[in-house]
Amino acid sequence: MIKLASSAIAAFLLMGTTVSAHGNITSPPARLPGPAMAQACGQQAVNKVLQDGTIPLENLLPASESCNLFLCRGALFADNPTQLQQFSLGQTINFTAILPIPHEGPANVSIVNTATNSMIGLPLLVFDSYADENLAVLPANNTAFSVTLPEVGESRELEDACSGEENAGNCVLQWFWFGTQAGQTYESCVDFVLV
């Protein structure tokens, strides 16, 4: 019961603070901070993310070299096994983002191998100009968009790295956005395996 209550409080904090923040992915479920991230990045980094679920990377200071903020904003799979999604090659995945404070700049969604923090193939979606604060209304595709995974046989690297439950935590769909004028970086990661 205590574990459930603390999880509910963490979720409430993340949801409640996003209205005054910058942006993140809300669907599919993205990695959240937890004890493994605290061990790697320090409790202060976890507390900051819990206070502001859309905090830019530049507002987090890693506590050690074991913290890689430029991979999923430091969040680790060890804290998120229940968030793991199952996708198929050729599947289209719908995303929802919240952007309470827009900052114009480039954005993309890519498949990232977490072991090497490198992109598998080309980005699945690219925005040359995303979340432009000079627009009266943001385009609908800034907060509701989709990506389609490569078809069978298009990427052997993807199939090898991401197939099956034994590869859980190896692959993420990473939403990456850099607000050029603000000089701020935002990331959200969705863990997945191919089935």
Rank of each mutant, 00 (worst) to 15 (best):
I9V: 15
A11Q: 15
T92Q: 15
V19Q: 14
A144F: 10
G121L: 07
D52P: 09
Y130V: 00
N59D: 14
N94D: 14
N24W: 01
L32E: 06
L84W: 03
P33T: 04
G16T: 07
Q44M: 08
L60I: 06
A140G: 08
G74D: 07
S118I: 11
P62G: 05
L60M: 05
Q44Y: 08
P150Y: 08
S129N: 15
D79K: 00
L13Q: 05
E104A: 15
G105K: 10
K48F: 02
H103V: 07
I120Q: 07
N108P: 14
P56N: 02
V147R: 00
I93C: 02
T54G: 08
F70Y: 14
P139N: 11
F127Q: 07
I55R: 00
L138A: 04
N142R: 05
T116I: 09
Q44V: 14
A107D: 10
Q85W: 10
P29M: 10
D79N: 01
N117S: 11
A45H: 08
L60N: 03
L135W: 03
A136Q: 14
A30C: 05
L135N: 03
P35K: 14
I120C: 06
L122G: 07
K48W: 02
A140V: 08
I93A: 00
P35Q: 13
N47H: 10
N108W: 11
P100W: 06
P56H: 05
L84H: 01
V19S: 14
N47Y: 05
S146Y: 06
Q44L: 12
S118G: 15
L60A: 02
D79G: 01
I25E: 04
I111N: 03
V19W: 12
A131C: 02
N24G: 04
A78W: 12
T92D: 09
I120F: 05
P56A: 02
L14F: 04
A136M: 11
A131I: 00
E133F: 00
M15T: 15
Q51N: 14
S129K: 15
V109T: 11
D52F: 04
N142Y: 05
V137W: 06
G121D: 08
E104S: 13
P33F: 01
M15H: 12
S64V: 08
N113F: 09
N134R: 13
F70G: 15
I120G: 06
V137G: 03
A10H: 10
N134E: 11
S6G: 10
P81A: 12
A36R: 04
E65M: 15
D128Q: 10
M119I: 15
G121N: 11
A11H: 14
N108G: 13
A38E: 08
L57E: 05
A131G: 03
A75E: 08
A140M: 10
E151N: 15
A21G: 15
P102A: 08
Q85G: 09
L124M: 13
R73P: 10
N68Y: 09
L89P: 06
I93G: 01
L84E: 00
T96G: 12
A36Y: 03
L61D: 11
Q39N: 07
E104Y: 13
S7I: 04
I101Y: 01
V152W: 05
A21L: 04
V137Q: 11
